[in-house]
C-alpha cells in the first residue's frame, strides 16, 4: 500500500477507459446533437414535439432506467441488438462501445441544448442575406448557420465530454463493470468504496476526477474565447 500519490495501474486503467468512453461518445453524439438542435430550432415538421420529448427524456429519467431501456433495445434479444448481432456480428452489451452509447445518450440533452441556444441566438437576417446571395438550404447551413453556432457546438463538446466522464447509472446498467473495458472513473470509485480498505484508492480516483474537471473547465474557457474571436463576435 503506497501513499496518496502512488497511483496504481487500476487507477490509470479507469482513467484511460473514461477518456476513451467519453471521447468516443462525444464524437458520435455531437453531429447528431447538432442535427437535432437544428431541427428543433428551425424545423417546422410533424413530430417536432415528439422529437423534443425524446431528446430530453434522458435528462428527466433515472439514469438506471435509461440504461435498462438501452438493454431492452440493444441487448442480445432486443430488436436492435439482435439485428446488430445477425447482420454485423456485433455484440454491444458490456463493451466499451456500450459504455459510450449509454454515456452519449445521457449527455445528449445537454449537448442539444447548448447548440440550440446558440442557433436561436443567431440573427435570422444573416440567413436571409445568404439566401439572397444565392445560397440554398444546405449551403446556408454549412457556410453561415453552423459557423456562427460554433461557440455553442464547442460548448456542447466540452459539457458533453464532462457529463460522459461522470455518467454512472446508465453505464453500469447497460455496460456493466468490466475492468479495462467499461470500468470508468465513477464506477471504479464506487467499486473501491465497496471494497474494505479501499478508501485510499477512492480518494485518489476522486482527486483525478477533480483534476480532470478543473482541466476541462479551463480548456472550455480557452476554447470558448478562441471560437468567439473566430466567429467575429
Amino acid at each position: 500500500m503506497g501513499g496518496l500519490f502512488d497511483i496504481g495501474s487500476e487507477v490509470w486503467s479507469a482513467l484511460g477507459v473514461s477518456l476513451v468512453v467519453a471521447g468516443r461518445a462525444v464524437l458520435f453524439a455531437l453531429p447528431l446533437a447538432v442535427l437535432a438542435a437544428w431541427l428543433l430550432a428551425r424545423g417546422r415538421f410533424p413530430g417536432r414535439t415528439a422529437l423534443d420529448a425524446l431528446v430530453h427524456a434522458p435528462a428527466v429519467l433515472p439514469p438506471v432506467a435509461v440504461g435498462f431501456g438501452l438493454l431492452l433495445l440493444f441487448g442480445v434479444r432486443g430488436p436492435i441488438g439482435a439485428w446488430l448481432q445477425q447482420a454485423l456480428g456485433v455484440r454491444l452489451v458490456f463493451t466499451s462501445q456500450a459504455a459510450s452509447l449509454a454515456a452519449g445518450v445521457m449527455a445528449f440533452p445537454l449537448m442539444v441544448r447548448s447548440v440550440r441556444l446558440s442557433l436561436e441566438a443567431a440573427d435570422p437576417g444573416l440567413e436571409i442575406a445568404a439566401r439572397s446571395l444565392g445560397a440554398a438550404t444546405w449551403d446556408r447551413l454549412f457556410s453561415v448557420t453552423l459557423p456562427l453556432a460554433l461557440p455553442g457546438i464547442a460548448g456542447a463538446a466540452v459539457t458533453g465530454f464532462a457529463a460522459c466522464l461522470g455518467e454512472f447509472g446508465a453505464v453500469i446498467t447497460f455496460a456493466g463493470d468490466v475492468p479495462g473495458e467499461t470500468r470508468t472513473l465513477p464506477i471504479a470509485l464506487y467499486a473501491a468504496l465497496q471494497t474494505p480498505g479501499g478508501e485510499g484508492e477512492a480518494l485518489r480516483l476522486a482527486l483525478i476526477a477533480l483534476a480532470i474537471a478543473i482541466a476541462a473547465l479551463i480548456a472550455a474557457d480557452l476554447l470558448d474565447r478562441r471560437v468567439r474571436a473566430w466567429t467575429g463576435r
Binding site: A129, S132, G134, V144, L150, G232
Partner: peptide, 21 residues
C-alpha cells in the same frame, strides 16, 4: 422562384455582413 435563385442583390438597412468572414 425561391429567393436564392432570383438573382437579386439585396442591401439591408443593417448591412448583415457575415461576422465570421
Amino acid at each position: 422562384l425561391p429567393m436564392e435563385r432570383r438573382r437579386i442583390g439585396w442591401v439591408f438597412q443593417d448591412a448583415r455582413l457575415f461576422p465570421h468572414l
